[in-house]
Design a protein around this nucleic acid. Structure first.
Lengths: 237, 237
DNA sequence: ACCTGAACACCGTTCAAGT
DNA sequence: ACCTGAACACCGTTCAAGT
């Protein structure tokens, strides 16, 4: 009897040797698997095994696997660095921010895929988004253009990271594709085949830098159209 | 005996009632399933069942499921319309082309996902790419900018289609996300929350049109830099 | 409230065996 | 050469049963 009482007390304080499950510990374990072995090796069962339980146990903390995907992504986005205020011209800070985001996505095989398929944004995604909008605002971009402009920049860089990830994950078979492109086209696709010669592994970063500049120029140059639905607004006339 | 001989002859001509498997028939059956039931319901086993065989039979025509994904995507891209030559200013034709591509991707749940994850481009992807490059060329865009510019336009519109697909597939839960955004942010994410008010289902098309214009402007405005690696090239000096 | 094992209804892929 | 059934090694998710 006494023994049991003592055990109970001890268990309260010492149990966290095997720390209890939590959304955070699950997300970390999952991200760890993804980083090490890739998205294809990630499963609820593997995550559970890593945490010394059965898959069913995770359902207390997570509704389904796609919610887990969301947690993983946001866990990964923690390491995107927001540029310090006024550290450089706003334009450069946008590029720094987005290229840091690009690097984080590309470091984890499948992360860019997740970013493109996850529906509800997590805390860190919002942080990045807010920062980007702030920088556009600082550059004198009005609300409307912040909306589609920020969206454009983020979508482009995410897709760009997905593209880069494909090349990295393809590994060996990369050369087969290059050969295929070189041989097939020429006659029917002169422009494509002229280009594909230049495409190289890792060149994405350079392309992205050029593209981001062009997009920002485009946002700034875009004409301010008075919305048709606001024809009664006299303040802009 | 005679009966068997007759049977053999008949079988040569009449057998195609159940037409033999082929890459094309497999791709069509697969696209059909995707269009009707979504990417998540698509599997080698389902495709095989639809074709009255076992999954193992498909491996004669297809190396693995990701090759099948590639076939599906290209099958879907058949219906992207290339704008007729000189039918309108090159700028408008680019927008027509890319918005048609957008529509096709968005019509099949999961197609945009496939476009973003498929590694080697199929015939129809090349067709679209070639057309886009031709239009940029027509607009006076030089080779270098065709490269990253075309890439930029294509990646953006594909990611945009993926984003739109998510909203359509989310269906009901769409409102939950909007509520979540509205309540959570405000203090910590003033800019994001100000924006999310405006985001509506189906508004992507309008956003895409604005974004494409901005990108094209950006491409045209981008300074022609002499490549550092070509400092010996005197023809540009 | 949390955890568990077993079960259900699926997967992609391989392989020996048939024609 | 093509097709097949059965098997292998996995999945996500549910549920009754335990604490």
């Amino acid at each position: 009897m006494r023994k049991q009482e003592v055990r109970t007390i001890i268990s309260r304080r010492d149990r966290p040797a095997k720390e209890p499950l939590s959304r955070d510990s699950i997300a970390s374990a999952a991200l760890d698997i993804l980083l090490r072995e890739g998205l294809s090796k990630l499963s609820l069962r593997r995550v559970a095994a890593k945490l010394d339980t059965g898959a069913a146990s995770l359902y207390v903390y997570v509704e389904n696997i796609s919610e887990l995907y969301g947690l993983i992504l946001d866990q990964a986005l923690v390491s995107v660095e927001l540029p310090e205020e006024k550290s450089s011209p706003w334009r450069d800070r946008i590029k720094t921010l987005l290229l840091s985001y690009f690097d984080v996505l590309v470091r984890g095989p499948g992360l860019a895929q997740l970013a493109l398929s996850t529906f509800s944004p997590g805390y860190n995604a919002l942080r990045i988004c807010e920062c980007l909008l702030g920088l556009l605002k600082e550059g004198g971009v009005d609300d409307k253009r912040q909306d589609w402009g920020g969206d454009m920049l983020l979508l482009y860089i995410t897709a760009s990271a997905a593209e880069e990830s494909k090349w990295r994950e393809a590994g060996e078979s990369t050369n087969r594709l290059r050969d295929a492109l070189r041989s097939l086209s020429e006659d029917e696709f002169p422009l494509v085949s002229a280009l594909s010669m230049a495409t190289r592994y890792g060149e994405r970063h350079k392309r992205a830098a050029l593209a981001l500049d062009a997009m920002i120029d485009g946002i700034l140059a875009s004409p301010i159209r008075t919305e048709l639905t606001e024809v009664n607004d006299h303040t802009n006339a």
